[in-house]
Design a binder for these strands. Structure first.
Lengths: 174, 174
DNA sequence: TGTAGCATGTAAGCCGTTACATGATTGA
DNA sequence: TCAATCATGTAACGGCTTACATGCTACA
């Protein structure tokens, strides 16, 4: 590894590091149930492109042929993932918060419309919480998923507190 | 506007909607003091590219020539911004949380190293809070910046609560 | 029999970054 | 006079998305 790979590569490598061999399709499902909540769930096409690269670099091995082919992290994949986790600098989390952007521009849309927007967001947060709850429950208690479970908990608390803050902001616009 | 512009265009248009005419350079400074905290502060080069596009579309007008040229939002710019704010669908906020990703992969780096990582993050959150506090104080009380000030408050509370959650997670890994 | 899910990939194209290049002004 | 700040842009390139294309299997 001369060059650092994009973080998304490491995220996928990380999903494979839990053990089970996965098809690209399954990888996407795992991403949708985990990465989606605090990272991004890459498009299918990107997963296949990424897998091709990881195979070429020998970080991932493929068993079988084209449809149904399962991927496993290789020894050097594990090593590279560990190297990345221990040496790569950690970016401060990046938020693309379209709701905050709209509140920022509240003078354009008006106080009323902006308040509605915040209230809609509170509802969407509740819906998200339900989704993540389901994930969390499926992980809880399983030792292999101890860390993913912690992240899910974190996410749940975040959604909860975010909803509280936003509800309060909305009230102040009433 | 047949096609929607990228949200970053609207963010910049939004910065201009506060009134003062700005150079590209100044726009970057405003972005660094506001957008950065809940969106992204675009690279200088992108700001200039974006301004060129907005000029071509007539959403922004430029006074004077090349160096020192100031940009103002035009009437149609204001209309388009309003249109976007009232009709465009609002994406659920996207988080690229490298710390959460690393906690998710805690089994690879180990509990000890992961705990340290979380503690470092708590420190960085505190530093961020200081930065945003400075911004918030410069906005507070000014009526024109009522909404930006609300967003800054939101950000501050978020950083605070995030730090609490993370500190607790770290403690549980001890 | 037809639709939903499993499964994999290519192509086009935009967004945005880093690197590079240039030059004026201001103050130590 | 030198460095920092103001100021503007081009070029190369990577990441990622959407659209497109293909085909199998299970099941209602």
């Amino acid at each position: 590894m001369r060059q650092e790979l994009p973080s998304t590569s490491y995220a996928l490598l990380g999903l494979l590091s839990f053990g089970p061999e996965l098809t690209g399709y399954e990888l996407k499902q795992w991403a949708d149930a985990s990465l989606r909540f605090y990272w991004t769930s890459p498009a299918m096409s990107q997963i296949y492109t990424e897998l091709a690269r990881l195979r070429e670099l020998g970080l991932v091995t493929a068993a079988g042929t084209a449809p149904g082919r399962r991927h496993a992290i290789s020894a050097s994949g594990r090593a590279e993932l560990r190297r990345w986790l221990s040496t790569a600098e950690v970016d401060f989390p990046v938020l693309k918060h379209s709701v905050a952007l709209r509140l920022f521009l509240g003078h354009v849309a008006g106080q009323q419309r902006t308040r509605e927007l915040l209230e809609e967001y509170v509802d969407r947060l509740a819906a998200r919480r339900v989704e993540l709850s389901a994930v969390q429950e499926s992980l809880a208690g399983q030792d292999a998923f101890r860390f993913p479970s912690l992240v899910a908990e974190w996410g749940l608390r975040y959604y909860e507190l975010e909803a509280e803050i936003v509800a309060e902001l909305a009230a102040r616009l009433a």
